[in-house]
């Protein structure tokens, strides 16, 4: 199972030199750490390299390592349909967290990145439509950050929340029709 690690590492080193750090192979996944400014090139390379063909983006998610610094991390899980290999790429991000968007490489990254933005406030630069996806427009804070209280802030609808400014109320469905930000990439 582990024979492909040297291959992936060698191919990466040929292209990117020492910038990509290898984190080892565990539980069926090869892990690498990459600097944020290389993420798009790296993803495109992994997807298009004929020996690797990581053509399927499984997941993008954020991790908050508060109070450790650098605080945030964007984690990408890639899968190669022809080879059945899995790769994890981790990107440590400072505060405020910013990372280039990979929507140009996979269209499926669109919602994953919107979710990560909504939950962790990681800004994906170059994303065509970076709106909140779970919470409503106008919601304050990023709920999955470690310093956001689990129960939110107290108001009439949730008397168990933490003390603080009560959350804004969402608009009714009929009001918040999006004006800009066309999210359809093709016609």
């Amino acid at each position: 199972m582990n024979v492909e690690t040297p291959l992936i590492r060698t191919l990466m080193a040929e292209r990117f030199g020492e910038a990509i750090e290898e984190l080892g192979f565990s539980h069926g996944v090869h892990a690498f750490a990459a600097p944020p400014d290389m993420i798009v090139d790296l993803c495109r390379f992994l997807k298009e390299d004929p020996a690797l063909q990581f053509d399927f983006l499984s997941d993008i998610c954020g991790v908050d390592h508060y109070p450790e610094m650098p605080r945030y991390e964007a984690v990408y899980h890639l899968f190669s349909l022809p080879n059945k290999w899995r790769v994890r790429i981790k990107c440590r991000l400072g505060d405020p967290p910013r990372v280039p968007s990979v929507t140009g490489v996979w269209r499926t990254a669109n919602w994953h990145e919107r979710e990560t933005w909504d939950m962790y406030g990681i800004r994906f630069e170059g994303h065509p439509d970076l709106r909140r996806i779970y919470m409503w427009e106008g919601f304050e804070g990023f709920p999955q950050r470690k310093d956001f209280p689990l129960r939110g802030y107290k108001d009439k609808l949730n008397p168990f929340g933490a003390e603080g400014s009560p959350p804004t109320q969402p608009d009714l469905a009929t009001k918040d029709i999006p004006q800009g930000g066309r999210s359809t990439p093709r016609t």
């Binding site: 909140r132 996806i133 779970y134 919470m135 999955q144 999006p178 066309r182």
Partner: peptide, 15 residues
């Protein structure tokens, strides 16, 4: 064009 709006059942499972 279609713009799906989700999050009406976001319960915060992960948190």
């Amino acid at each position: 064009r279609v713009d799906p709006h989700i999050g009406y059942l976001h319960r915060g499972t992960e948190k």
